Structures are given as C-alpha cells and as structure tokens.
Simulated assay, not measured.
Amino acid sequence: MAKQFPEIDDAQRKFIEEQHVFFVGTAAPDGRVNISPKGMDSLRVLGPTRIAWMNLTGSGNETAGHLLETDRMTLMWCSFTTRPLILRSYGTARTLHLGDEGWDELAELFPDHRSARQIYDLNVDLVQTSCGYAVPFMEYRSDRDTMQKWVDGKTDDQIKSYWVEKNQQTIDGKPTGTAS
C-alpha cells in the first residue's frame, strides 16, 4: 500500500543514499514524457524538502527542455536488493547552468566532472513509498567507466560542441536552454 509523506525522513534519506541508480521523470505541457536513469555520484539530499543532482552530458537533454516550460519533476528509486521498496519524490525544480548564481555552491557538493551540463535543484513537496514486490533482485557490480573515458577523450571545446550538436533541442524540437 502506498504511503505519502510531506518530506523526506531520515530512513528515506538513508534508502536514497544507498541506491546506485535513480530515475528522473519530467514532461512539458505537451509532447513526450521523459524518464531517464541516472547514476554515478550525482545526487545529494540537502534536507527534508530539497534534493540536488548534477546532470552529466548525454545523448539527449529532455529534462532541461521540459523545465523551461513547466517546473514539475519526479525522482524515483527502487530497491533491487533485500527490501522491496519504491520511493518517489515529487516537486518543482530549477535548472542551474555553469555561471548561474548558486552553481558554485551546489557544484562543490559533487565530484568535479568536466561534462556537467546542469544542476537541478528540486523542492520536494510530496514523498511516496510503495511496495516493490515485482521489482527483480539485481546485483550491483560497479559504476560504468564509459562516461569518464568519453570525457577523457575530449577537450572542453569538443564537449561544448557536442552540446551544440546534440543537446540544443528536445526530441519534440523544443529548446533546452543549454549554452552554445
């Protein structure tokens, strides 16, 4: 049975911090809904109603585009180990780009990563837990090194060129606000 909470409690925070992957969901008022898996050391629970996560370069940039139109965001974690649990945090988010006020303060919370495109600052207004009875057991081996190898093979200018080529529009053709 799903249970709802006004904020993240200590047990929920611990659960979030133990997970190796989370999912982000956003949608513009029209067009496609986007759900993306995220990993690496890219998320911080900053308090009972605040989460920040650093978005690294990817092949798309739907979250940024959606947040230009509506600030709704959902983050989800699910246990693949012993405890069957799904946890979602719902709220509104703002996008920070390198150079924006607040970027430096939040970026200090994460390992330095040259391909960081945005930091999302989520104000949580609802937390929901539900059973994870149908979620399979899976064993975590390690983070992939693919992103780091890709970054290591690029200059900063090449990464920015990639953003211009691949990250300027959503799949629905809307702008993402990513610097060119």
Rank of each mutant, 00 (worst) to 15 (best):
P111G: 04
V127R: 05
E62L: 10
W53D: 10
G31N: 08
A28E: 07
M73Y: 10
F110G: 08
D100K: 05
W77L: 04
C131F: 01
S42T: 15
C131P: 02
H20N: 15
V127W: 03
H113E: 03
S89C: 12
L106N: 01
H66N: 14
E69F: 02
A28R: 14
F23R: 11
Q128V: 11
T95Y: 00
W103K: 07
C131R: 09
L43V: 09
H113N: 14
E105K: 13
G58L: 12
A107S: 14
G91M: 07
W77Y: 06
R50W: 01
Q19P: 07
P29G: 09
D121R: 09
G102H: 05
W53P: 04
L106I: 07
L106D: 10
L67F: 08
D112V: 06
H113C: 09
P111M: 04
A52H: 07
G65W: 11
V124I: 15
S89F: 00
V21A: 06
L109Y: 07
P37Y: 01
P48E: 14
N55W: 04
Y120E: 00
R94A: 02
G65N: 13
L67S: 04
G102Q: 05
N34C: 03
G31H: 03
T49Q: 15
T57G: 12
W103L: 00
L46K: 11
G25D: 09
G132R: 06
T63G: 02
A93Q: 03
L98D: 08
G102C: 07
A107T: 04
L68S: 06
M40C: 02
M73A: 14
M54Q: 15
D112P: 11
H113R: 10
N61C: 15
L68A: 12
R50G: 11
G60Q: 13
G47F: 13
Q128I: 14
E101D: 14
L43R: 06
P29Q: 12
G132A: 07
G47Q: 12
G47P: 05
R94L: 13
A52M: 00
